[in-house]
Simulated scan of single mutants.
Amino acid sequence: MSTEPKAEWTEWREAKDEYLKRNPHSPIPQDQRDRFDGLDYYPYDADYRFVLALDRFSDPETVTIDTTTEGTQEYLRWGAFTADIAGESATVHAFKPASDPDADHLWVPLRDATSGDTTYGAGRYLDLDADHRTSDDRWVVDLNYLYSPFCAYNDAYECPLTPVSNWLEVPVEAGERYED
Rank of each mutant, 00 (worst) to 15 (best):
W139F: 12
D127T: 14
R133H: 09
P27V: 04
T72W: 00
V140K: 01
E70R: 09
D55W: 04
S135H: 06
R22Q: 09
R124Y: 05
Y42D: 13
D84F: 00
L128C: 11
L126Q: 12
S26N: 04
F81G: 05
D55A: 12
T64R: 10
T67I: 03
P101F: 02
Y19T: 07
E8P: 01
R35T: 14
P97M: 03
L54Q: 12
D137P: 07
F57C: 07
N23K: 00
W139R: 08
R33P: 04
G123V: 06
F95I: 00
R13N: 06
P60N: 05
T64Y: 00
T82M: 01
Q73T: 10
A103F: 02
Y120L: 02
T91L: 01
R124W: 03
Y48K: 09
D47I: 03
P97K: 09
R111W: 01
R33A: 03
A7N: 03
D104R: 09
F36T: 13
R49Q: 11
W9R: 15
P97H: 07
L146V: 05
W78V: 00
D136M: 00
D131R: 10
H105W: 09
R13Y: 01
Q30V: 15
P97N: 06
T72P: 04
P5F: 09
V141F: 04
L52G: 05
Y41M: 01
D127G: 15
A46N: 06
L52K: 02
A90F: 05
E18V: 03
L54Y: 12
